[in-house]
Design a protein around this nucleic acid. Structure first.
Length: 474
RNA sequence: GGCGGGGUCGCCAAGUGGUAAGGCACGGCUCUGCAAAAGCUGCAUCGUCGGUUCGAUUCCGACCCUCGCCUCCA
């Protein structure tokens, strides 16, 4: 079996095979954040999903060249720069750093490349010039450069690969008409925006005068500069499918840089939105939570991660506080099993086995199926139950425990939950535990219960078993 | 208005033409001084109405509700 993934380009699940089988890595691009503010967990749903897919590809033996861009020039950023008096770099770097810190908090591996749009102005200009030379880009009266969808189509190219849009049937929103500028056609989009007074000091020189790049062309420039004109996977939130990704395809393929018969991107993958109270989580609706907000409320990064990858990536998912709280119990159960295995295994080497474990086989089957995480969690929790039962029956040898643990660690290499960090038991708690043990031995259960409550107040719970009492962090 | 997703147990969420995974919560039992943890166990006929079929939650049609995109957006 092989990994099958839904390809937005063909609207069906397809087997994933690399575009260039001999290449040393798979080209993997995910549209990153616009760094004008802290990202919210709706944004991070997409990034965690990208991280999961990247980790799974690696689990399946691919080497992945993971690129995530940072959009560091854009209208909102320019407004903020003007308002704060900071330089563009000063302003965007603080949110870029915050973004990377948040990614780490939710256990996302750092992408191999994190290109910033402002570092790719020459490449952007180059692409626009190519489009101009081919007659697909044109200069408008205001000094901006636009992409002509009609000219592009006249070259035999297809605009409308990711979405089926009938321009005539479109609603004429205010946004559309308000954005008309000097375009030949309403649907054309900006490649280079001429400098306007509101841009302040944010502008670059170009063959078309001072200005700044359009949003869409940035991703084309960065992805092709790093991964080449054709690459394997392009990810993003579903709201980016149109117009952002559609325009990326048009600009990138419009340059004619691809080898004949090669697409810009072989496989497009889109992550569905996170909802809050049934509505899309967004800055404009104000119904969002940042990673920092949730951390401040006492949640852990791994709990947020778990929740974000508990549902299939193509289904919208309703975020609730209750849902986040529920992850705690589930993770605790998983942690307890892993902790028991670790203890049982000791320093014993795992049983040698040349075949993957049942856990790994079922897990692989689940994720091969268009990254069916729900199925994967079912597999994992079935394994938890079975492992707990085996441990309780005493039938797990240290080397068998080590083997199970090793197998889990391989699976967790994809899920990225990690274990809950072990905390050293403070001396005060140890003393109380001993006091309770003594009380129990003396059959003074009133005292034992009192001490147990004192321990609880310190944040430790007691678990009694045949082999003695143990403290566990609450 | 156009296009695209959804409606499955209290909540979250898989899945299948032959009467429905898993997680959280809840109940019972075992274990325990009592708990906790763990195990066992109980709990749904799948939005509505029709159609196809020996049989549909799964296919088709209609309808209702809901979310998203339609050039700011992960």
């Amino acid at each position: 079996m092989a990994l099958r993934l839904f390809n937005s380009l063909h609207r069906r699940v397809e087997e994933f095979t690399p575009l260039f089988p001999d290449a040393e890595s798979v080209g993997f691009y995910c549209c990153g954040p616009t760094v004008y503010d802290f990202g919210h967990i709706g944004n991070f749903r997409t990034f965690v999903f990208a991280d999961l897919l990247r980790r799974y590809l690696e689990f399946r033996g691919f080497r992945v060249n993971h690129v995530m861009n940072i959009t560091d020039v854009e209208d909102k950023i320019i407004r903020q720069v003007a308002a704060t008096g900071q330089s563009l770099a000063e302003f965007t770097s603080q949110y870029t750093e915050a973004f990377l810190a948040d990614l780490a908090t939710i256990s996302c591996l750092k992408p191999n490349h994190l290109p910033k749009a402002t570092d790719y102005i020459p490449q952007i200009v180059d692409l626009i010039q190519r489009l101009e030379q081919r007659g697909i880009a044109y200069r408008a009266g205001d000094g901006s450069v636009y992409f002509s969808i009609n000219k592009y189509r006249a070259c035999g190219c297809c605009y409308g690969q990711l979405v089926t849009l009938d321009p005539e049937a479109q609603r004429r929103t205010e946004r559309v008409s308000g954005d008309s500028y000097d375009k030949d056609d309403l649907a054309d989009f900006a490649l280079w925006k001429a400098r306007v007074p509101g841009d302040g000091v944010v502008f670059w020189d170009s063959p078309w005068g001072e200005g700044r790049p359009g949003w869409h062309i940035e991703c084309s420039a960065m992805s092709m500069a790093i991964l080449g004109p054709s690459f394997d996977l392009h990810l993003g939130g579903e709201d980016l499918a149109f117009p952002h990704h559609e325009d990326e395809i048009a600009q990138s393929e419009g340059t004619g840089l691809q080898q004949p018969g090669r697409p810009f991107v072989k496989h497009w993958v889109h992550a569905a939105h996170l909802l809050v109270d049934g509505k899309k989580m967004s800055k404009s609706l104000g119904n969002f939570f940042t990673v920092r907000d949730l951390l401040g409320q006492g949640f852990q990064g791994r709990e947020i991660r778990f929740l974000l990858i508990s549902a299939h990536y193509r289904e919208t998912f309703n975020f609730t506080r209750e849902g986040l709280e529920a992850t705690r119990s589930a993770l605790a159960r998983l942690d307890a099993t892993v902790a028991q295995l670790t203890e049982r295994a000791g320093s014993e080497a795992p049983e040698t086995s040349t075949t993957p474990s049942a856990l790994e086989i079922s897990f692989t089957e689940a994720l091969d199926d268009d990254l069916n995480v729900s199925k994967a969690w079912a597999v994992i929790f079935d394994w938890v139950r079975e492992t707990n039962a085996a441990l309780a029956s005493g039938s797990v040898s240290p080397s068998a425990a080590a083997a199970r643990l090793q197998s889990w660690l391989r699976v967790d290499g994809v899920m990225g939950l990690g274990g809950r960090p072990l905390e050293e038991v403070p001396a005060a708690a140890v003393a109380l535990l001993e006091k309770r043990n003594a009380a129990k031995a003396a059959r003074d259960f009133g005292m034992a219960d009192t001490v147990r409550n004192e321990l609880k107040a310190l944040g430790w719970t007691v678990e009694d078993s045949k082999t003695g009492s143990k403290l566990k962090r609450l």
